[in-house]
Nucleic acid binder design. Sequence first.
DNA 1: GCACATGTTCAAGTACATGTCG
DNA 2: CGACATGTACTTGAACATGTGC
Lengths: 308, 308, 308, 308
Amino acid sequence: MTSTNGFSDSQESDLLGEEEYKTLVKDIGFVPTPWIQKLDPAIPIKEEFPGRYNFQVSLGNLDSSKNWVYSQVLKKVFINMEETLPLRFKWEPPEDGLLLRTAMVFSLDQYASDPVRRCHNHMAPNIPSNRDVLPRVIKHVVRCTHHLTLYEERNEHLSIVTPLNRPQPGSQYVPVCFKFLCKNSCPSGMNRRPTELIFTLEDSNRRILGRQRLPVRICSCPKRDKKKEEAEVSQPDVKKRKVCIPAGKKMMPSCDTHIYNAQLNIVGKENYLAVLKYAYDIMAGQAIRTGQLDFFKPYLDNILRKTP
Amino acid sequence: MTSTNGFSDSQESDLLGEEEYKTLVKDIGFVPTPWIQKLDPAIPIKEEFPGRYNFQVSLGNLDSSKNWVYSQVLKKVFINMEETLPLRFKWEPPEDGLLLRTAMVFSLDQYASDPVRRCHNHMAPNIPSNRDVLPRVIKHVVRCTHHLTLYEERNEHLSIVTPLNRPQPGSQYVPVCFKFLCKNSCPSGMNRRPTELIFTLEDSNRRILGRQRLPVRICSCPKRDKKKEEAEVSQPDVKKRKVCIPAGKKMMPSCDTHIYNAQLNIVGKENYLAVLKYAYDIMAGQAIRTGQLDFFKPYLDNILRKTP
Amino acid sequence: MTSTNGFSDSQESDLLGEEEYKTLVKDIGFVPTPWIQKLDPAIPIKEEFPGRYNFQVSLGNLDSSKNWVYSQVLKKVFINMEETLPLRFKWEPPEDGLLLRTAMVFSLDQYASDPVRRCHNHMAPNIPSNRDVLPRVIKHVVRCTHHLTLYEERNEHLSIVTPLNRPQPGSQYVPVCFKFLCKNSCPSGMNRRPTELIFTLEDSNRRILGRQRLPVRICSCPKRDKKKEEAEVSQPDVKKRKVCIPAGKKMMPSCDTHIYNAQLNIVGKENYLAVLKYAYDIMAGQAIRTGQLDFFKPYLDNILRKTP
Amino acid sequence: MTSTNGFSDSQESDLLGEEEYKTLVKDIGFVPTPWIQKLDPAIPIKEEFPGRYNFQVSLGNLDSSKNWVYSQVLKKVFINMEETLPLRFKWEPPEDGLLLRTAMVFSLDQYASDPVRRCHNHMAPNIPSNRDVLPRVIKHVVRCTHHLTLYEERNEHLSIVTPLNRPQPGSQYVPVCFKFLCKNSCPSGMNRRPTELIFTLEDSNRRILGRQRLPVRICSCPKRDKKKEEAEVSQPDVKKRKVCIPAGKKMMPSCDTHIYNAQLNIVGKENYLAVLKYAYDIMAGQAIRTGQLDFFKPYLDNILRKTP
DNA sequence: GCACATGTTCAAGTACATGTCG
DNA sequence: CGACATGTACTTGAACATGTGC
Ligand SMILES: [Zn+2]
Ligand SMILES: [Zn+2]
Ligand SMILES: [Zn+2]
Ligand SMILES: [Zn+2]
């Protein structure tokens, strides 16, 4: 699985230690049977299930700084590297002593078994942001701002465990913040492969009580990339490589092609003609802006015909 | 003449040396009589006159970088500090051996006798842009990129003299570029007082052959400040008193009160609503212009009712 | 460390002279061990400690002129330039022969090693307030009205030393008054960086016996700025820079009364006049809809005036 | 010296060891006086001089694979990473026992003292191409295929030394091949900074006998990038970043094509934008009606650009 | 070799900081 | 003290640089 940039897309290097394997099997052993899909310990399970605690994750407040955005259509977060993503976790009843495990995995099945780790560039110990970071933490792409978070490694795969205390009185959820220390594009790291966060609610014995997922893209231009990905799903059949793209620019939504029938009583012929002309002009403007002159032409001509 | 920031608006410190005074009088002595206005050597003469050489100044090409803008209404340049202003000078016949003297002066008469010099901050020898600048040059706000330019000081007043050679073959003018090394807002310097450049065409004996002026504002946001100054002159006293407009000035015939029924197919809701709004607005405009609001009101309300 | 205004935030220029360095080491040698934090002579120590004399500083009476205010929440003084700040110093037992050293330093760690000195503008020898001021005094931002105050310079860093005599009979403290000869905003000087005063109680051998600090902001509007800074700390998480949200998209924006200056190049006189008319009409429409005809009238008339 | 991608542009970490410094001074000591420019050992000397051996470098045959190209105008090689660049060296008389030192340096003076080293990604020991590479070799961007090449490090700066034997009988030159193990764009490495190779002819005592330089860009698309760089030098004054759409060439429109400049004060952003849109639309309408879209397009685009 | 993916740079715009004026 | 004047800093969108996939 080596792509053309020469960096292996697979990052694993070691086999799972026996001890860890036992631990893992033990953990999974407690998962209710229907949720056990694959026993290959190298492939993380991504199936969502709220479980008996009705485990849920939602987004925290979007501060106006907008270092991240959320796409409602894609159910996906787009965020800058090293910025904070505020999330909220909920479980019922809100008892104490539970744990939140957070792991980042590759979204595409073909890479599912690859561990997600930081790239060599960003792990280099001499860069300033790695100053004073523990070696066991430095290789994690995902960090949690909660200071009791544990950074774990099982079989090259990394995850972090944050202790959960019941929500503050009057609150329904617990806020937890995350940061991401590499970009999805990092060569020798995630290498342009999409990822998602897998959250599991666990008890103190690491039994899995619920699981949720949240696709995340860490990039330099979250807004731009969100727009592009949304455009892709909205026009799925357009061939990937188009020969030419007619640029649609703003000033007005370009997609609304519903036809409305306006019936108006206008005072004065001058005004009447002005309305006709205006209707013509705004549609002409949109036609040019969106490059859809062909579509608009008959409606324009129709107005012209009413003009004395 | 001390403003509240404690910096004297006047910068002169010395009297005119006798020698320089003689020189100055001699120069002015050659000015044709009608142009001698004031004999006070401290007050620069700003009167424009093309003279027998039909001396003219115009703007060079505005490169897209837009570190400067020119206001057509104000006949004024707005430019960033340390940026280049390309000008063009023309005289007829285009003979060689003439000189261009450029001086910056305060536009307001009350400061006309103050010399324009750099502020203490920007003259400080330890700032990088003053590295390798000659002491006699360092105090000038205006510099010319022409390397033969002389930097002169007469009685605290500064000016620069650039030799002019006839235009390149095929060209009508000679390009000369200037830079400005302080802002108009500089405390302890120009101190927020407006300025202008005075260009004089001189012969080799410093006889003045023509004069032109060009208001210049050196600031951090040329575009913004241009807009503001233009708005000021276009609406000189918006809150003070409103000028009465004789009712019924046209723009449209006011008498046609026939009712027309417009039926249109409009593409897109946005466009549909825009047509409704436009119909409303043009009738509202006419209603106000003709003072027949009462007549138009029901038709206006009718449109409002169609609006979601 | 150069900010965008082109002035270096760092003001130091020379290395510490050997003589001064010895002096400094000697001085620091007497500081009780726990208080020695850093031996870098360029970074002033700011730790407060009353010491065995229980050294304390407090504010003098706020005279009615109100050229300064004190923020209880911020523990910070806001004061006009060149105004007097009355302070009171106390030590126990109140013996004679001690010294008060006062130094102004930058509050932010990133600038801690920069010396605080007057800006070029305010140091200029020709401004009136510098008349008859000794050269060694002229560069100090902080002055003490006590006429025996010494003005010292160690390694570019400035401080002043005031002899302390025991309080007057019946008094618990000694009053000392200070003045500030630059503003925190001074370009080429403090350059908008926050500062604080560091007071050290010293014996006649310059041994440090106690230290106190007092944040000070020298500005033109102490009251306004105090209010703003207090508001900031009370709402720490509110976004610094709010992003403008587009006004409601109804047909009638009723509240936006900001004035925009539109400058357009229009092809054809017909179109040009149509744009004028349209601008008139939409404002007329809004004026009627919102009932604010009076407010809109001058702008409408202004457009009429442009109409041929 | 940190660029926005967070990687320091400077890679050096240590001071020059004493031993190395001595070595260096010794080396330089033998350089003929006129070539000693700067004694700062961190700044490599780039001056070309053939020296008494008339040391020359030229390109080998361009094999058909075309993994590299040479720009005659730029005197610069563009090459893919890990591909072989065949060069030819010549010296007269062609005696044996000389050495060729090859060092890669940054072309821009501001980075001249930074050592050129491989990026973290490409130095990672687990990538296949680093299998079986000696640690002292692994950090070099430049490798020589000659198996006797020595890989040296002086003060963080890297260079390689290849023994030169006189040309084969009948040949005028000696062929030497190089490979490059990072791209100029490598983040955390060369980080998009241009580079060049410095070749020095040395005798067995490391005395410098001649020097030549060859700009090299290692990239993924040598041909494309060559074309672009050549275009840049051929049009040096063209604005770097165009803010505007190139104005469509005119064809005489049949109707009123005079350009009017409308300046209006509009109340409210909504209204302001409406006027912009209206201006756009009426011109768009006319453009379609008259079939002169090309003529109108620049004016339309100009309005679009004012739209937020 | 081209279209695209994606980081970086640049510049316009705008909110804010802070002095000055009336 | 409020309204402005004006520099500075942040935000954003667009243009560019440059690698990758087809
Ligand atoms: Zn990375
Ligand atoms: Zn200045
Ligand atoms: Zn100052
Ligand atoms: Zn590399």
